[in-house]
Design a protein around this nucleic acid. Structure first.
Lengths: 342, 342
DNA sequence: CTGAAAGCGCTTACAG
DNA sequence: CTGAAAGCGCTTACAG
């Protein structure tokens, strides 16, 4: 390992000057800069990350905190992680993974270790105890998703309203008037305070009312079997439905197969639209699911860039930056079509 | 932030002594230990990670390097990552993500930064340029997967032989005699040197010959459409096949739907077995895929623990530890059944 | 069993 | 524009 000392000696300067060219933090004569740069190149010098971190009080490490228990991050979760890691890399930061329990003590300890310059929080709950811990620690952080009242926080999230608009536009253009929304449930302790479910439901209720559509809202377990059972009941009780939105990919697959097993053809007799879904999953279904693709990579990328902005902000900002909301993209599959005429 | 200095002052000792109890590295009288521990508790002291790293020349950071380009890590890749992160956490290490290009220069630079104590390499190629870089750097590393000639290396991998034995046992118990293996292909530059494909194929060829089974081996694109097309040709050219093993989950789904669309019922007329697959994916297919479940979490966990062993080994070991191979687990779905009698 | 001191490899006022 | 020196918060021989 070659140190700044060796570079300085070889270039005939002090280590301070080496540091100045490395960080471009003070003016240096072209001539000496030149000498230093060739010395660095010849020695293959790379500045030690730990020493830099300690001296500059900046580790260039960003932590990604996610709930350790549900160690199913899912396909969208993975997109999020890789998107965040790629953005961090591009900005010359590193992303470190913090699988922590949802009670915030573990997170608090990690934060106190002074390892990370900032924290990115995934799977944010509507009332999330982790946030208070981060605030008290005074460490920069931003959220993927948001709490019930996120105005004072820095976050990126899915644009649920816009996504719902896209979904309803799609279905209405196809002539659908009676639409069901099927979501994960019954609410468990944890999901009770889970934003995407609530926000989707609210947008659905509000917008369908405004558009004068007939709707049904139902919960089912987030599994293939759950979707299958739920849809059987659903079509029995609401024979006039022509389209179903499903907010869980496994349930969506179950809905499709459940429909077909009771003689309802998809998409001829019934359209199915899978909400907040990843292509990997949607393609596995037969017929392939039409989906609103969750913007996992984009959110990961954005989240990291915002966090870096926060970390590097010269005076600590008092107001959070305006939140960024990204809608899901409609990706045509084979499960939506014109509503059957009656 | 409270430092060791403050703890030492409050306990009336030197910072050296504080360090000794923190690291349990020298005997300390119960009485002073007591004083120090209460001082730490009262102050909420947490030792600074950067300072510790610099002084001890150990960062407690482990890097997970994966190819940045194919930023599809897939469902098993995710299991691997979360398994590794959880194990690292449990061992009081941190996992940092290094999405790097497959040419090894980027990896070389990161290694030279002195950030990580060791590197875990994912998606190992049969001839992998990254390995030489790590060897030359002298940094501990271990592999998930292995090169063509891995004897001198430290790795964990899937036990392909054992997995193939489980698969063939399963199919033979069901009476299957004529079996196809469908894998990803045609080989692209990168996949050409991809181990799992080659090892599966070799195990398949060797074991089926030994068991006196009739076989077909074929490549297809790793997509639903690829599987669908391939299987259509396959059954036309080999009408006596009764079972197909597929080494890509998307292709497996395509095989199932392709078969049904040409009037071959699954599993009545044809069994389909999905190789190295994740439950998340298998469940999306209809009927649900019978699979050999890839041990993603276990490999991630093991890989990290081995790497930590390496990092902490007192004299640098000259021989690698014996490799650990983990077979896939057979998970019953709905796509395998007794061979049709002819 | 405990402490004084050097040192890890950088950054950053402070002087000149 | 450049350098000497203090300092980041720990660990670790070395003494006693």
């Amino acid at each position: 390992m070659t140190t700044m000392r060796e570079v300085a000696d070889r270039a005939g300067v002090s280590i301070a000057t080496v540091s100045f060219v490395l960080n471009d933090t003070k003016p240096v004569t072209p001539a000496t800069r030149e000498r230093i740069e060739t010395a660095m190149a010849e020695l293959g010098f790379r500045r030690n990350a730990m020493a830099r971190a300690l001296a500059s009080r900046r580790s260039h490490l960003l932590a990604l905190a996610y709930p350790a228990l549900e160690h199913k991050l899912g396909s969208t979760g993975m997109e999020f992680v890789t998107g965040a890691a790629a953005a961090a890399r591009e900005m010359e930061y590193h992303l470190v993974l913090w699988p922590v329990s949802n009670d915030a003590t573990e997170l608090g300890e990690l934060v106190a270790d002074g390892l990370a310059d900032g924290v990115l929080l995934m799977e944010v709950l509507l009332d999330d105890p982790r946030i208070e811990v981060l605030q008290r620690a005074g460490l920069p952080f931003s959220l993927i998703g948001r709490t019930a009242d996120p105005d004072a926080l820095d976050y990126v999230d899915i644009d649920f309203d816009q996504t719902m608009t896209i979904a309803l536009d799609h279905l209405q253009e196809l002539g659908h008037q009676r639409i069901a929304l099927l979501q994960e449930g019954p609410l468990q302790r944890l999901l009770q305070s889970y934003g995407p479910k609530r926000r989707t439901r609210q947008a659905f209720r509000r917008m369908t009312r405004h558009r004068g559509l007939d709707v049904v809202v139902l919960d089912c377990p987030p599994t293939v079997g759950g979707g299958r059972q739920a849809v059987t009941r659903l079509v029995a009780e609401h024979p006039d439905l022509t389209a179903i939105m499903v907010q869980n990919e496994h349930a969506a697959a179950g809905v499709v197969s459940g429909l077909q097993s009771v003689g309802v053809a998809v998409p001829r007799d019934m359209s199915v639209l899978s909400f907040l879904t990843s292509p990997d999953m949607a393609m596995m279904s037969d017929p392939e699911l039409t989906m609103l693709r969750a913007p996992g990579t984009a959110l990961g990328d954005l989240g990291v860039r915002r966090l870096i902005d926060l970390v590097e902000a010269k005076p600590r900002p008092t107001e959070p930056a305006a939140p960024q909301l990204i809608p899901c993209e409609l990706v045509a599959g084979e499960t939506t079509a014109a509503a059957p005429s009656r």
